[in-house]
Computed example of a mutant assay.
Amino acid sequence: MRRAPTSPSRVDPEREAALADLDPLTVTKLWDNPCWLSFRLNFIAFRFNDPVYRWIETRYGLVRPEFVALYAVGLKEGVAAKNIVASSGLPKNTLSRAVQKLLQRRLLKRETDPADLRSYVLHLTPAGRNIFDETMGPMIQHQATMLAGLSGDEQRQLCVLMDKLVIASPNWPQELQPEPHKTTGDLS
C-alpha cells in the first residue's frame, strides 16, 4: 500500500515515539492509507466537534443540528435557512427541524427578507445571542489547544493550505464516477 506523503519517516524517532501513543488502527488509517487526507481531516474534526457538541448538549440542551444553525446565525445575522444548509452539509429536512426547535425555544426569530419579500431570514434573540457568546470562549480555547503543537508560521501556513482546498472544492465532483470493472474475459 502507498504511504501518505507525510507519513512518518523511520529515521524520525520522535515522530515514531509519538505514534506509539495512538491506537494501531488509527495509525494505519491516518498514515498507511492512500486516502490519508480525508481520514486525517475527519480525525481532527471529530477531536474538535465531539467534546464541543457533547458539552453544548449537556449545558444548553441543543443537539448538533440545532447548534449548527444557531452558530451560523450568530456568525452572520440575517441568513436564510438555505444558506445554513449550503454551508453545513446538513440535510434540508434536518436543518428545518432544528430551526423550528430554535424558533420554539425563542433562540431564533424569523423575519421577512427585505431583499426578497417571499423569503425569510433568521436572527438570534437575546437568549440565542447569550448562548452563542457563552460558547465562543471555550470553542476558541479548544481550537487553540489543538493548534498548540504548531508554531505561528505553521498555523498561518495551515490556514493558507486549507483556504486553497476550500476554494477549490466547488470544482470537485459531487458524485463518484468509478471506472467500470473489467471482467476476466474482457480483452480491451
Rank of each mutant, 00 (worst) to 15 (best):
M1Q: 15
R3Y: 10
A4I: 11
S7T: 12
R10S: 15
R10Q: 14
V11G: 10
V11E: 13
A17F: 14
A20R: 15
D21V: 14
T26L: 15
T26D: 12
T26P: 09
T26C: 14
T28V: 15
K29R: 15
N33V: 07
S38H: 10
F39C: 13
L41D: 08
I44K: 04
A45D: 09
R47Q: 11
N49W: 03
R54N: 08
Y60T: 00
G61L: 09
V63C: 04
P65E: 03
P65K: 05
P65W: 02
V68C: 04
V68F: 01
Y71W: 13
A72G: 04
L75D: 12
K76I: 09
G78K: 04
A80N: 06
A81S: 07
V85N: 03
V85T: 05
A86P: 00
S87H: 00
S88F: 01
P91V: 04
K92P: 02
T94V: 08
L95W: 04
S96C: 01
R97Q: 10
V99Q: 01
K101T: 08
K101W: 07
Q104Y: 06
R106W: 13
L107T: 03
L108T: 02
L108P: 05
R110L: 08
A115Q: 13
L117R: 13
Y120F: 14
T125A: 07
A127F: 03
G128V: 06
F132K: 02
T135S: 08
M136R: 15
M136H: 09
M139L: 11
I140S: 08
Q141Y: 00
A144L: 06
G149D: 01
D153A: 06
Q157G: 01
L158Y: 04
L161R: 12
D163K: 09
K164I: 05
K164G: 11
V166M: 07
V166R: 06
A168N: 09
S169V: 04
P170I: 02
N171Q: 11
N171K: 11
E175F: 12
E179F: 06
P180Q: 01
H181R: 10
T184S: 10
T184L: 12
T184W: 11
S188V: 12
